[in-house]
Design a protein around this nucleic acid. Structure first.
Lengths: 203, 203
DNA sequence: CCCACCCCATGACAAACGTCATATCCCTTT
DNA sequence: AAAGGGATATGACGTTTGTCATGGGGTGGG
């Protein structure tokens, strides 16, 4: 009997180790590689050619979402399962677009992990049903690239002037984009807009 | 040989299960209880009287910090070890004030967890050395209670007017407090101030 | 008792922010 | 060719924010 070979990517070392321990308790699963960021994960996948890659989203070096895209392209025999804290419609959408086969939330019971790995390994899709619904009716990302860049910086506390300088724009233009973003999101100021966009996975 | 009895509290079910699995791999440690929030953790401690409580900080119902205080007071034979993502001086300080014996970060290697549990069980203190230093030179929380309340709301995107109404203050007063907080923190606007305070564990 | 330190308020001013109208340029789709 | 949309800009307007000076009241420690 051949075990399912899994690589796990997660930037919090403690959680990485714990997840690996959790998977190792399953008789039919073996953790053949661990990675602390996206880049490491990509090389680990290249080296071990695992059946499944379980990866977090927010990681240094390379996002789990970009990672999913790369793996899909370069090692299509490895199926990707996202394991994240964030129930954000935009993340789910991007993950599926990038070719991920599964999207599991970290607040699901730990018993589901092994099961999800098995299903993904069998070629099935595993997507949190509540989240899938929410993704549906929250609609697509309404922001343009520029609006995203600017809203992101505004959310970090930068002033319009600073943002303008950073992106080589006029200050008025920056204010225009912010105004546009605020109205698209139905917010009442830049901070609320940034929080809203973030919570939907659009930033 | 008696195993060290441990209760684990962590709001992300998947991580909770994984941490428990990690601890269970140790021959001298037994996980006798699990909790998904502070209140559950408190009753679990009351029921099992464990040697060590390993707990996250940011949880629903009751923070790990308040929890630490309660446990210290009601079940002093149980030693508390904080296990958190956040390297925030303010959190560390509050944890120690509340009687916690250990403060471990989730980005430490998973091998350290069992070790830290053993040490805490023996009555030793376990504190991340880098963080302890940072806590030292970042000084104590300079904010007053009011400033904290107001800065918190400002960080959520509320306007001065909204905050004033919510707290039954005049708008000018709110602006005064914000100005004071901004200057205390060396920030250049409310958003940056909120981010700064948050990153130090003062919000 | 006085001093320090919260709490709360007002008024005034400059700077930053949010909105709107308007305009050009460029690219893609019809 | 026309229409749409994104990127960029300007000017003008009112609102919000950040600062400062200056006041009042409360509480607790020396």
């Amino acid at each position: 009997m051949k075990k399912i070979q899994v690589v796990v990517a997660e930037d919090q070392a403690m959680v990485l180790g714990a997840l690996a321990a959790l998977l190792e308790t399953e008789p039919d699963i073996a953790v053949c590689g661990r990675a602390a960021n996206g880049r490491e994960a990509l090389t680990a996948v290249g080296k071990h050619k695992p059946d499944v890659l379980v990866t977090d989203i927010e990681m240094p070096e390379m996002t789990g979402l970009t990672l999913a895209g790369e793996v899909k392209e370069r090692y299509p025999q490895t199926r990707v399962m996202i394991l994240t804290t964030f129930a954000r419609p935009g993340y789910l959408r991007r993950a599926l677009d990038a070719g991920a086969k599964g999207y599991l939330l970290k607040d699901r019971p730990s018993a589901e992990l092994a099961d999800a790995v098995r299903r993904v390994h069998q070629g099935l899709r595993v997507v949190d049903p509540d989240l899938a619904l929410e993704a549906w009716d929250s609609g697509p990302d309404p922001l343009t690239e520029r609006e995203r860049q600017i809203l992101w910086r505004a959310g970090e506390g930068k002033s319009s002037g600073e943002i303008a300088e950073e992106l080589h724009l006029s200050e008025g233009t920056v204010r225009n984009y912010l105004s546009e973003a605020i109205s698209k999101l139905g917010a009442s100021n830049r901070v609320e807009a940034a929080r809203l966009a973030r919570s939907r996975g659009w930033l």
